[in-house]
Amino acid sequence: PDDEWKERLREAEEKNNWKLFEELARKAGVSEEKIEEWKRRWS
């Protein structure tokens, strides 16, 4: 299951679909801290 969400995150990233990325990350149990960090790195 871990690989599956990583794959989906990669797809979201490729499409630059931040909303989807964020949603998937939350569902995968990624901390808000980590998500914010990704946001900063991404923008």
Rank of each mutant, 00 (worst) to 15 (best):
E33D: 09
K15D: 10
K15N: 13
K6A: 15
L24D: 04
S43T: 12
A25F: 04
L20K: 06
R26V: 03
G29S: 01
K6E: 15
K39Y: 10
N17I: 06
D3L: 08
E13Y: 15
A25Q: 02
K19V: 12
E22W: 08
A25G: 01
E23A: 08
P1G: 11
E23T: 07
S43N: 14
K19Y: 11
S31L: 04
K19I: 12
E32G: 03
S43G: 14
F21V: 07
K27R: 11
K15A: 14
F21G: 00
E13F: 15
L24N: 03
W18N: 00
R41D: 13
D3V: 08
L9I: 06
E4L: 11
W38F: 10
R26E: 02
P1R: 09
W42D: 01
W42S: 03
W18C: 10
A12F: 10
E7K: 08
E23H: 06
R26H: 05
E13N: 10
R41F: 12
D3K: 08
N17R: 04
L9D: 04
P1W: 15
N16Y: 06
S43P: 14
E7D: 12
W5C: 03
K19G: 09
S43L: 13
W5F: 06
A12W: 10
E23Y: 11
P1T: 12
S43Y: 13
W18I: 06
S31Y: 01
E7R: 08
I35T: 00
D2N: 09
A12I: 06
P1S: 12
E36K: 07
N16L: 09
N16M: 10
R40V: 09
E7S: 06
E33A: 11
W18P: 01
E7L: 07
N17Q: 09
A28V: 06
R8P: 09
E33V: 08
R8Y: 13
R26L: 07
E4G: 09
F21M: 04
N17F: 06
P1A: 12
E37M: 05
G29D: 01
W38N: 01
R26S: 02
W42L: 07
E37G: 01
N17L: 06
D2C: 15
A28H: 09
G29R: 00
S31W: 01
E7V: 07
P1M: 14
G29W: 00
W18R: 01
W18Q: 01
E11V: 04
R10P: 05
K27N: 11
F21N: 00
W38H: 09
L24C: 07
G29F: 01
W38K: 02
E36L: 12
K19F: 11
F21I: 05
W42I: 04
R10Q: 11
I35G: 00
N16G: 15
I35S: 00
I35A: 00
E22T: 04
L24E: 10
A28W: 09
R26G: 01
K19D: 14
K39Q: 04
E14N: 08
R41W: 15
S31N: 06
W5E: 04
K39T: 02
E37W: 04
N16D: 09
V30K: 01
E11Y: 04
R26D: 01
W5R: 01
K15V: 09
D3Y: 09
I35N: 00
E7H: 07
G29P: 00
V30A: 04
E13R: 15
E13K: 15
K19C: 10
V30H: 08
A12T: 04
E36G: 05
E33Y: 06
K6V: 13
L9C: 12
L20P: 03
R10T: 07
A25W: 03
E11P: 01
W38Y: 11
F21Y: 04
R10E: 10
L9W: 11
R8S: 11
W42A: 05
R8M: 15
W18M: 05
R40N: 13
G29I: 00
P1K: 10
K6G: 13
D3Q: 11
R26M: 06
E32R: 06
D2T: 11
E11S: 04
R40P: 02
E14F: 13
R8T: 10
E37K: 02
E13A: 15
L9N: 02
W18D: 00
E13G: 12
D3T: 08
A12S: 05
K27F: 09
S43I: 13
N16H: 12
V30M: 15
V30I: 14
W42P: 02
K34W: 14
W38C: 12
E33W: 07
W38P: 00
A12K: 02
R40M: 12
I35Q: 00
